[in-house]
Design a protein around this nucleic acid. Structure first.
Lengths: 209, 209
DNA sequence: AAGATGATTGAGTGATCGCTCAAGAACCGA
DNA sequence: TCGGTTCTTGAGCGATCACTCAATCATCTT
């Protein structure tokens, strides 16, 4: 059929489900709750999504589009500095966590641990979300030039930033306060400082050649 | 009835539930499944645990005891070297992940993201599990003496090791292979090397005073 | 206007959820 | 041997689970 404007009901279902999966988790969120919150009837939902699992796949694809404009671009807008952008990005997650009373954390991280074992397609989409996240950060780090060591694997470091963010949020979730997250970020930033120190000594060596 | 040592049924329920929660998650595991696997009748379970949530609390207390003998002591047995013990500990989690086909990951991490929002007591126990884990690693790091910088916060670094472990496992879960975990551990070990380098230069300065 | 297609309605499905409880068996000290 | 306590049995409870479908409405094409 001729392409029509994006279906409003479908979009509302995706937004509502994304929100509820983030707040309560996938299994803890009943289809009935999603339908009530989105003000949609069961038949309508099953017109667009064959099952709750397929709705999850839709949500994960929605998150893939959501990631750039809602997460990465705000951090990019705050500063041009490559490493400053990493700091801003982590600060964004901190604010999200704080304003939720140390609940919820990262939506993708939560789903990664809850559904990635039993649903291969969901696992693949979560993986793609992580890869996109890290690729964007890698892009920032690539613009850092000789502020970072010459032979440093930027992609690996970008994934490490994700690792620290997810691990820090997890512990803060359990702690009920942001201490563990802040500590983790602090060590990460010290790591960056050591890398920058290392890079400066490399530059000095090149100059004295 | 066959004579049993005290609370054998209770112990079997805790072991079985711990295993199933780890494999499938808390909400995805039905009470009926636990009862079938543990070969226990509903009435028996509800004699020991007032609800599924209370069973979870029992499991988290069980994990608290399980942590030392089953996780930390094996790593301690492999080497006396403080930083080597960190490496061994991470290697243990790697092996667990590998032998499970990159499924499951860390039982405490999974539960942290699934149940810590809706159950305050569970959150507190998960937090205590994390704190015990980190405290044990901190104990190792404290024996490293001047191999690490003098004013380094050992407790913070220990928690950072946990952060990297959990974040790395999460990404490997989504990826379906151990690449992200290995990369994260590699960066962490490079961080330790930089700290050791820093500590060596401190020693040199002290000597030349 | 007529027909085709897409989208919505909502009562209702069987299955499974966490859980109950009355009855009885096993074990205990006295 | 007895009464008291702890533990086990398992059929069965109401609630909720994910999901169905025939009927109806809305929109577009011809």
């Amino acid at each position: 059929m001729i392409a029509q404007e994006p279906n409003e009901t479908r979009a509302r279902l995706l937004r509502t489900a994304f929100q509820l999966f983030h707040e309560q988790g996938f299994h803890a969120t009943g289809v009935a709750t999603i339908l009530r919150e989105a003000d949609v009837n069961p038949g309508s939902m099953y017109h667009f999504f064959a099952s709750k699992d397929e709705l999850l796949l839709g949500v994960l694809e929605f998150a893939l589009e959501y990631l750039g404009p809602a997460v990465m671009e705000p951090a990019e807008a705050r500063t041009q500095d490559p490493i400053g952008r990493v700091t801003e990005l982590l600060e964004q997650y901190r604010e999200g966590m704080e304003s939720a009373g140390c609940r919820m954390g990262c939506p993708m991280g939560n789903l990664a641990l809850e559904v990635s074992d039993g649903n291969a397609q969901a696992r693949a989409l979560i993986h793609r979300n992580f890869e996109n996240w890290a690729a964007r950060v890698e892009g920032w780090l690539n613009t850092a030039g000789d502020r970072l060591p010459r032979d440093l694997d930027r992609g690996r470091l970008a994934r490490f930033v994700l690792t620290v963010m997810e691990g820090g949020l997890m512990q803060s979730r359990a702690a009920g306060h942001l201490g563990p997250f802040d500590d983790s970020v602090a060590v990460l930033l010290e790591h960056f400082e050591m890398l920058e120190t290392q890079a400066r000594s490399q530059k000095r060596k090149v100059r004295t050649k």
